[in-house]
Computed example of a mutant assay.
Amino acid sequence: MDTAHKLEQHRVWLETNGKNGELFTLIGADLSQVDFRFANVSGAKLSGANLSFANLSFATLSVADLREANLSLATLSIADLREADLSGSNLTGSNLSGSDLREANLSGSDLREANLSFSNLTGSNLSLAYLEGAKLKGANLSAANLSKAYLKGANFKGANLKGANLSEANLYGSDLREADLSIANLSGADLGIANLSGANLSSANLSGADLSVAYLHRSNFTGTNLSGAYLKGANLKEVNLSFANLSFANLVGAKLSGAFVQNTIFRSNSGISELLKQDLIDRGAIFENA
């Protein structure tokens, strides 16, 4: 297979808007270990292709069809993958650091142990994707769809998840330190033993979320919907809960000393002792009848 010739024909195809040359099409082909560095393969059809161990750093694959492709352990650092269709693809252990994945479709893809640090995933679709142990430090995931994604143990430290959809996502044991989760949808999410230290969750939806044994030191829950959330035994010391809604939340044994509770809504049967209840009222909390 003369890959260089095919790439040259694709270049001509792009430059002439399809009048000359030929679209790069290698559906189901074995392209493992091929060097695509700096190549422009935008719009290429590579569904089902084997690109494991391939080097695609600095390559342009915008709007490319990579459905169910094997990109395990591939190098895609600083690659242009805008609007690419990577649904159902295998990207385990791949290096996507600094890549542009805006509006890309990664639904159902396997990104376990992948490196997506500082990548741009704005508006991307990662619903039902597997990202266990993935590195997303400093990544931009604003308005991304991560609903029902498996994110156990993933590193989101300092990531931008503003307005992201994380409903019913598994974030058990994930690192979300200093992440921006403002106005994000985390309803029904599993955040057990997750590290949310210094995270911004203002105006987020965490209704029905499980925050058991989560680390919440100095996190911001201003105006957050925590109704029905599981916070049994949670350490909420120094946490900003102002204007938050904790009605129907399970707060049995929760530590709330030093928490900011101005206009925070609680339910009288939330598991809070009468002594703590009065202290919270004195600090501006609102208790509604059950």
Score class of each variant (00 low, 15 high):
residue 8 E to W: 10
residue 9 Q to D: 13
residue 13 W to G: 06
residue 14 L to M: 05
residue 15 E to S: 14
residue 17 N to M: 05
residue 19 K to I: 09
residue 21 G to I: 04
residue 22 E to T: 15
residue 26 L to F: 09
residue 30 D to V: 12
residue 32 S to Q: 13
residue 38 F to S: 13
residue 43 G to N: 13
residue 46 L to W: 03
residue 48 G to F: 04
residue 51 L to V: 07
residue 53 F to P: 05
residue 63 V to T: 15
residue 72 S to M: 03
residue 78 I to Q: 06
residue 87 S to K: 07
residue 89 S to F: 03
residue 106 L to V: 08
residue 112 R to H: 09
residue 123 G to C: 13
residue 129 A to S: 07
residue 130 Y to A: 08
residue 133 G to M: 08
residue 136 L to Q: 02
residue 138 G to I: 09
residue 150 Y to E: 13
residue 153 G to F: 06
residue 160 N to I: 14
residue 160 N to P: 03
residue 163 G to P: 02
residue 164 A to G: 09
residue 167 S to L: 06
residue 175 D to V: 10
residue 176 L to A: 09
residue 187 S to T: 10
residue 188 G to P: 04
residue 190 D to W: 06
residue 197 S to Y: 06
residue 198 G to V: 05
residue 202 S to K: 13
residue 203 S to W: 05
residue 203 S to I: 10
residue 211 L to T: 01
residue 213 V to A: 14
residue 214 A to H: 01
residue 216 L to A: 09
residue 230 Y to G: 02
residue 233 G to E: 04
residue 239 V to T: 13
residue 243 F to K: 15
residue 245 N to D: 11
residue 252 V to L: 15
residue 256 L to S: 07
residue 257 S to N: 15
residue 258 G to W: 01
residue 268 S to V: 14
residue 284 G to C: 13
residue 285 A to M: 04
